[in-house]
Design a binder for these strands. Structure first.
Ligand code: MN
Ligand code: MN
Ligand code: MN
Ligand code: MN
Lengths: 233, 233
DNA sequence: TTATAATTTTAGGCAAAGCTAAAATTATGT
DNA sequence: ACATAATTTTAGCTTTGCCTAAAATTATAA
């Protein structure tokens, strides 16, 4: 349940959401970005690392609260209301990540779990001030866009590095998966947000690449190229 | 319950505390500062704004976890373990309050409720870095001492303004109750932490005072003088 | 000392959020 | 088309943290 009843009394009467509810909305929001239409119970369960039966329970509750539209055996789709709350949680998550990296000098691979907690702190004023304090950043430390205060996510035209052909180049603007191991691997390869990457060679049979990073050459597997977003132009 | 199972996995195996448990420990810690010995069920219930029967439940659970010693019908007393956790929660609360006032420019009467949420964020590394970022402050914006990382609260010799006699003076070092109305009243009177206050007159029958604040004179009731801590020397 | 009052605990319930096992529905392959 | 597989839901149980009402204990006061 939600931490305790005191925290429950929250100014915004229509968003008395528990941590669990917020986490579900956020997960569904992310799934909707990947594939439009109804999101399946199984997909939600997998992304939340929980059981389908638990998802059914929660999705029914969220439907009652008009956070999403749910049709039995069909799946769930966020309403505007639900999407707005999801976006605000993601906004908070990413702003806190910026704070942790920019101000507290955390490494970009250390901030996710802490932001996962901070994203549930409820105070509009806090987020307004935090945003200003950080200089109203547009992207978090992993290159993910920060929704604006109205919940609008500006889509950037970015593509996976694996889609680039020989001699094309781009600037690294984000990572797809941001687990610690991967981010530490990127550090070793001297790749971070803003790094210019040029494809020097690409193997046909396994998709591996030789790339230019600064003045060094590097070999990377398709797995890596599939998890790096670049912006070309 | 605690937000969700994921947050539950926490490095320090012996401190998998829920928000509710932490809040109880904190409340008992504060009550023990006011009066030594066993803390009564009713006292805890009152300070937590909950029912005595709920307190009994929780106190029994905390006793099982060795956070406190509980004797039926007698009351509760924190163990070293319980006191340490309580102190760490208070440390977090007060550090976050400093952050909110010093960095985000909140007013000192606006920060309590937000800190009440932030105090439960679990990450030793976060607090270590936050503390350093803030310059390892010794006091929070209300003049309350911040426990060190080992849970040690340095006691300062401060006294209530109401205890001062005519012509004595002191520096305001804290407030007893820090509710918004009172803090806003102090603002109006131009009193804040660090303000020098001299007692120009004190009425015998009601304890009200005329005081000097800067170059202005001010009249205050005993209620106010009973809620302001000063340091004389 | 004993009756009444106050405090504290127990008993029994409720809502949130999870689980497993079984039933219902939908999808798929021959 | 129809059997089997996969997905989804339901039913029933658990824990946490709260509640009310009733019982037990301790305090107080005549
Ligand atoms: Mn993250
Ligand atoms: Mn991120
Ligand atoms: Mn406070
Ligand atoms: Mn304070």
């Amino acid at each position: 349940m939600f931490p305790n009843k005191k925290i429950y009394l929250c100014i915004n009467i229509n968003s008395m959401m528990t941590f669990a509810e917020e986490n579900y909305l956020k997960a569904i929001f992310h799934l909707e970005l990947e594939s439009a239409g109804e999101i399946s119970t199984n997909a939600i369960a997998e992304s939340m690392e929980t059981k389908p039966s638990s998802v059914t329970d929660m999705v029914q509750k969220l439907a009652e609260k008009k956070m999403l539209v749910y049709k039995r055996y069909k799946g769930a789709q966020l309403t505007d209301k639900g999407r707005k709350i999801a976006a605000s949680v993601i906004r908070k998550h990413r702003l806190w990540e910026v704070f942790l990296v920019e101000k507290l000098k955390f490494h970009w691979d250390e901030v996710h779990d802490i932001a996962e907690q901070l994203e549930h702190i409820q105070s509009d004023e806090l987020i307004t001030r935090l945003d200003k304090y950080l200089g109203s950043p547009d992207f978090d430390p992993h290159g993910d866009p920060i929704p604006d205060k109205h919940g609008v996510l500006k889509r950037t035209e970015k593509k996976l590095l694996s889609k680039l052909e020989k001699n094309q180049q781009g600037v690294c603007v984000g990572v797809k998966e941001s687990n610690s191991e991967f981010l530490q691997y990127l550090d070793k390869k001297k790749i971070s947000i803003g790094t210019k990457i040029k494809v020097l060679g690409k193997e046909f049979f396994d998709g591996s690449m030789v790339i230019q990073v600064g003045k060094d050459q590097s070999f990377i597997s398709k797995t890596v190229a599939d998890n790096l977003y670049v912006q070309t132009q």
